[in-house]
C-alpha cells in the first residue's frame, strides 16, 4: 500500500517545478518570479538572449544556488534538500564544464561510475570511442568541444530520469550536435526521460523540443508546446493609419520609423486571430521560431 502510494506520488510529481522563483546578485535581479512545471517525458527547450538568466534558472531549479525568493522542487522534493535517491535520477552539464581537470577521461568515468547504481559502462565506452574522445588524456588538456562531449557522455551514462543541459550545443560541431540531439530525442521518446536544455540555437530546439520556454530579462514570457509557437502566434503588421487599433493584449510591440507598428499576437480560445487582422492593409505573418524569438526578445 505504502509502496503504491509512493509510486503514485512519484508519478504525479513533476521532475522540475518552480514557484515564484527569484534570484539576484548584488542588487541586480536575474530571475523574477518564475513559475514553471516541466512535465515528465517532455523535452523543454529554454531559449533567451545572452544574459537573460537561463543558466541561473537552470541552476536554481537544481538547487545549485540559494534563490532569494520562491522555491524549486525536483521530483517533488525541495531542490536544496534533495536526497541521494533523487540525485541518482538527475544529470546536469553546466556551460563550459571544467570539473576534475586533474583526472584523465578514464579516471573521471571510473570515479563517477562508483556513485551511480545504474551507470551504463557499455554506453560510456562505446560513445567515448564513437565520439573520438581520448580516454587517457587529462581533462584539463582537452579542447572545449571535447570537454563538453565528455561531459555529455558522462551525463547520459548515468542513465538519468532528468537531464538538464546548459547550452549543450555551444561548443559542438554540427555532426556532434546532431548526434547529441538524436540521443536526447530517442531517450525522451523511448525511455521517457525528461530533458531541459537551454540554447540560443533555435533550430536545435525545433528539432527535439516538445515544449519551449522563452526567458527574457529574468521573466518567463512564454511556455507552450513547440508546435503551438508556430500555430498560435503570428506577427501582425499595421500601417501608420491603423496604428491606433492595435490589439491590446500583445506579446511584443515594435513601432517603426514610418509610424507603422508590428505586434506579436496570439489566437484566442476559439482559435481566431484578433479582430484587427481582417482590416484592409493589415498583414499577418506566421512566424518561425527564430523570428518569433527575435520579435519577442528585441
Amino acid at each position: 500500500m505504502n509502496a503504491l502510494l509512493q509510486d503514485a506520488h512519484e508519478r504525479f510529481d513533476p521532475p522540475l517545478a518552480a514557484r515564484g522563483l527569484g534570484h539576484g546578485y548584488e542588487g541586480a535581479t536575474v530571475l523574477r518570479c518564475i513559475n514553471l512545471d516541466v512535465a515528465p517525458g517532455s523535452v523543454l527547450g529554454l531559449i533567451g538572449r545572452n544574459g537573460a538568466g537561463k543558466s541561473t534558472l537552470l541552476r536554481a531549479l537544481l538547487g545549485l544556488l540559494e534563490p532569494t525568493t520562491g522555491e524549486a522542487r525536483v521530483f517533488g522534493t525541495p531542490a536544496l534538500a534533495m536526497d541521494d535517491t533523487v540525485r541518482q535520477r538527475i544529470a546536469y552539464v553546466p556551460q563550459q564544464p571544467e570539473a576534475l581537470a586533474w583526472l584523465t577521461v578514464e579516471q573521471m568515468f571510473d570515479y563517477l561510475s562508483r556513485f551511480y547504481p545504474s551507470w551504463n559502462h557499455a554506453f560510456a565506452s562505446d560513445t567515448l570511442a564513437r565520439w573520438q574522445l581520448p580516454e587517457n588524456k587529462l581533462l584539463g588538456k582537452l579542447s572545449p568541444g571535447e570537454r563538453q562531449r565528455v561531459e555529455l557522455v558522462r551525463a547520459l551514462s548515468s542513465e538519468p530520469d532528468l537531464l538538464v543541459l546548459d547550452e549543450p550545443a555551444a561548443a559542438l560541431d554540427p555532426v556532434a550536435r546532431r548526434e547529441l540531439l538524436r540521443e536526447i530525442a530517442l531517450r525522451a521518446g523511448e525511455a521517457g526521460i525528461t530533458v531541459l536544455f537551454s540554447t540560443h540555437i533555435v533550430s536545435d530546439l525545433e528539432r527535439v523540443a516538445s515544449e519551449i520556454a522563452f526567458l527574457h530579462e529574468g521573466r518567463l514570457l512564454l511556455h507552450c508546446p513547440v508546435d503551438d509557437t508556430k500555430e498560435r502566434y503570428a506577427r501582425l503588421w499595421l500601417p501608420a493609419r491603423l496604428a491606433s487599433s492595435t490589439p491590446t493584449s500583445t506579446l511584443s510591440r515594435r513601432s517603426h520609423a514610418d509610424g507603422s507598428v508590428s505586434v506579436v499576437v496570439e489566437r484566442d480560445a476559439h482559435g481566431r486571430w484578433p479582430e484587427a487582422h481582417a482590416q484592409p492593409g493589415v498583414r499577418l505573418d506566421v512566424l518561425g521560431l527564430e523570428d518569433l524569438f527575435v520579435e519577442i526578445a528585441e
Binding site: R59, L62, G63, L64, D84, T85, R87, Q88, I90, A91, Y92, P94, A99, L100, L112, R114, F115, Y116
Partner: peptide, 8 residues
C-alpha cells in the same frame, strides 16, 4: 555542481 548532484 557535480558534487551537489553526486549521489552516494
Amino acid at each position: 555542481p557535480m558534487l551537489a548532484l553526486l549521489p552516494g
